[in-house]
Amino acid sequence: MTHILRIDASARRAGSVSRDLTDQIITQMGAATVTTRDLATGIPLLEEAWIGANFTPADQRTPEQAATLALSDTLVAEIKAADTLVIGVPIYNFGVPAALKAWVDQVARAGVTFQYSETGPKGLLEGKRAVLVIASGGTESGSDIDFATNYMRHVLGFIGITAIDVVTADRLMVDADAAMKTAQDQIGALAA
């Protein structure tokens, strides 16, 4: 059975290209289970209490520290339960939306989703697939001014997810028809 974790990072619910394309991908994949995490509802930023709780060994955390990490634990559990992540990534001001960066901060945890070794960091969430749905008004995906696509590839690889497909609907304000045709072609080429 396929379990997809859908992550929507667009602040727009209606008229969002990344959400619409994500819908299409999930329909095409025909997953048995889809868990949705809508980041537009808000993800807390890291603060001092979170850092302190995260770096306290789990068996020594106070009830307050455990409560501070509860959302992070839930977000990590969602990734662990999924076979595939489908992440809608609109490019805002050349990078990822702040809510998506906050999600990354909540899930990139030493000893939980990655660990350090003599040879460097090693991701602990191997054997999963990710599909990034990149949408932008003017930024060309993969260009020198696209700080979102490679960032997301790197972050996912850092936590062990290296099988990554990218669907792009970029430069929508320049040529929407061409951008959407490219995205449709890429969706059609995705193996379920």
Rank of each mutant, 00 (worst) to 15 (best):
residue 141 S to Y: 05
residue 145 I to K: 14
residue 127 G to T: 02
residue 161 I to H: 14
residue 149 T to P: 00
residue 122 K to W: 02
residue 146 D to M: 08
residue 137 G to V: 06
residue 145 I to T: 11
residue 153 R to L: 13
residue 131 V to Y: 04
residue 147 F to M: 13
residue 126 E to S: 10
residue 151 Y to Q: 03
residue 121 P to F: 09
residue 117 S to N: 06
residue 136 S to I: 02
residue 131 V to F: 02
residue 148 A to F: 08
residue 145 I to M: 13
residue 122 K to Y: 01
residue 151 Y to V: 02
residue 160 G to R: 12
residue 154 H to W: 14
residue 135 A to T: 14
residue 121 P to W: 10
residue 146 D to T: 01
residue 152 M to P: 04
residue 116 Y to K: 15
residue 134 I to S: 06
residue 121 P to H: 12
residue 128 K to V: 00
residue 144 D to E: 14
residue 158 F to S: 08
residue 118 E to Q: 14
residue 148 A to R: 14
residue 129 R to N: 01
residue 145 I to C: 09
residue 159 I to M: 14
residue 153 R to F: 10
residue 134 I to H: 10
residue 116 Y to W: 09
residue 147 F to G: 13
residue 134 I to P: 01
residue 145 I to G: 03
residue 118 E to C: 06
residue 127 G to K: 09
residue 122 K to C: 02
residue 149 T to R: 07
residue 120 G to F: 04
residue 151 Y to L: 03
residue 159 I to S: 11
residue 118 E to W: 01
residue 131 V to C: 02
residue 134 I to T: 05
residue 153 R to I: 15
residue 117 S to H: 04
residue 117 S to C: 06
residue 125 L to A: 08
residue 122 K to N: 02
residue 123 G to Q: 10
residue 147 F to I: 04
residue 122 K to H: 08
residue 128 K to A: 02
residue 143 S to Q: 09
residue 133 V to Y: 09
residue 139 T to L: 08
residue 146 D to E: 06
residue 126 E to N: 05
residue 144 D to K: 05
residue 132 L to Q: 07
residue 121 P to G: 03
residue 127 G to Q: 10
residue 126 E to R: 10
residue 132 L to Y: 01
residue 118 E to I: 01
residue 145 I to S: 13
residue 132 L to R: 09
residue 146 D to R: 13
residue 122 K to T: 04
residue 141 S to R: 15
residue 120 G to D: 10
residue 119 T to H: 11
residue 124 L to E: 04
residue 124 L to N: 06
residue 160 G to L: 07
residue 145 I to N: 09
residue 159 I to W: 01
residue 152 M to R: 13
residue 124 L to T: 01
residue 117 S to V: 10
residue 125 L to T: 00
residue 118 E to K: 13
residue 132 L to K: 09
residue 126 E to C: 00
residue 127 G to N: 11
residue 133 V to D: 00
residue 131 V to L: 02
residue 120 G to Q: 06
residue 114 F to N: 09
residue 153 R to A: 12
residue 130 A to F: 05
residue 131 V to D: 02
residue 156 L to W: 02
residue 156 L to D: 06
residue 118 E to H: 13
residue 153 R to K: 15
residue 118 E to G: 12
residue 153 R to M: 12
residue 118 E to A: 15
residue 137 G to I: 09
residue 160 G to V: 03
residue 147 F to T: 06
residue 133 V to L: 03
residue 114 F to Q: 07
residue 114 F to R: 11
residue 141 S to T: 08
residue 132 L to N: 11
residue 134 I to A: 05
residue 155 V to Y: 15
residue 145 I to P: 00
residue 119 T to L: 11
